[in-house]
């Protein structure tokens, strides 16, 4: 037996779990407010565009998106195994690839702002 490399994927999962636990409810609430017609300042086009135009704004958005995606991907991998999907290697490649590709896409769009 050798030491596992799972710490890499698990560490990001745990970091994502922590970040989403702290801020996800507030983020969803912001969008809900907007959906009910009380658009918070930050979600107006000018403000959000200005926020995402700064380098640190991009970093914050990308960080949240990547960690949330990775957290979800890793947990989905475990859950699929739990419900009897035994092809763990295939599942792992698939879910982490979705998280990675979506994150790269987010980075691409952020750089165009």
């Amino acid at each position: 037996m050798a030491k596992s490399n799972k710490p890499v994927v698990w560490g990001l999962f745990a970091a994502g779990g922590t970040v989403t636990a702290f801020i996800m409810p507030a983020l969803v609430l912001l969008v809900l407010l907007a959906a009910f017609g009380r658009v918070p300042d930050i979600l107006t086009y000018e403000k959000l565009h200005a926020f995402a135009a700064q380098w640190w704004g991009k970093a914050v958005l990308l960080g949240i998106i990547f960690l949330a995606l990775w957290h979800a991907a890793h947990r989905l991998r475990i859950t699929l195994h739990d419900v009897g999907v035994r092809a763990d290697a295939t599942v792992a490649v698939a879910v982490y690839a979705v998280a990675a590709v979506a994150s790269v896409a987010a980075a691409f769009y952020l750089l165009r702002i």
Partner: peptide
């Protein structure tokens, strides 16, 4: 739902750009 929401955020950033 966390994964789905993160994907919606990516879409939102695409629209923003």
């Amino acid at each position: 739902s966390i994964g789905a929401y993160a994907l919606v955020l990516v879409l939102g950033i695409k629209r923003l750009s």
